[in-house]
């Protein structure tokens, strides 16, 4: 595993830890989109099906379990925890996220590496992950007050796929891996969607000001 891949995984893990920290310590999910969190559950559930069929490494298995368990528990907290769920911005989190699921699935049926159940679901998870942040970005734009943990959560979540882009370049150049257009283009789209957010996040960080996105 190269340094970019490891940094990407750690950033991804860090983003989830930051979100769990917010939920546990502040007992709040204000500013967090349940729609995005539900999409991540679907992303992980369809991508990590191979946990039962293929063993890669101890690291790989542990990380998959962590991502599955944490994504399910975040959704559980936001929906069912008696305190946390009251902080959910239901009225502002109105993105119709199921409208993202069907086009991604159709695209995975049409454009995939191999037409098998496992491969189509894996491809679907890549396409869906690329756009899963959209409800969260819309909610952030509507939020007057973006607290630090929420801002950092979204930043780390965006940085993770950006680091994967470097990992893919490295694998292609140094390890002579094959062309892998499906994850590459999905990852590129995913990272590009954060461009605006990154710009304002870094600007506010430099000026030591509170993060606010223009409407």
């Amino acid at each position: 595993m190269n340094v970019f891949r490891l940094a990407g995984d750690m950033t991804h893990l860090l983003s989830i830890m930051v979100l769990l920290l917010k939920i546990h310590s502040m007992k709040s999910c204000a500013g967090i989109s349940l729609k995005t969190q539900e999409l991540y559950v679907l992303v992980f559930a369809t991508r990590y099906l191979d946990i039962f069929t293929t063993y890669f490494s101890f690291y790989n298995t542990v990380m998959k379990i962590v991502f599955l368990v944490t994504s399910f528990s975040i959704v559980w907290y936001m929906r069912h925890h008696k305190v946390v769920r009251q902080t959910y911005d239901r009225d502002q989190d109105t993105f119709r996220h199921h409208l993202l699921v069907i086009p991604c699935f159709l695209l995975a049926l049409l454009i995939n590496h191999r037409f098998t159940v496992r491969e189509v679901l894996w491809t679907f998870s890549l396409y869906l992950e690329a756009v899963a942040i959209l409800p969260q970005l819309v909610l952030l734009q509507r939020s007057r007050n973006i607290d630090n943990l929420t801002g950092n959560y979204v930043f780390f979540l965006g940085a993770y796929r950006g680091l994967y882009l470097f990992n893919w370049i490295y694998r292609y150049m140094a390890e002579k891996s094959q062309l892998r257009w499906i994850p590459w283009i999905s990852g590129l789209v995913q990272t590009a969607l954060y461009a605006d957010f990154f710009y304002y996040y870094i600007k506010s960080w430099k000026k030591r000001e509170k993060l606010q996105l223009p409407a």
Binding site: T54, F56, K64, W122
Partner: peptide, 10 residues
């Protein structure tokens, strides 16, 4: 089978 080549990523 080149499944393993890229499915080891998360």
């Amino acid at each position: 089978d080149d499944y393993d080549d890229y499915h080891d990523e998360l």
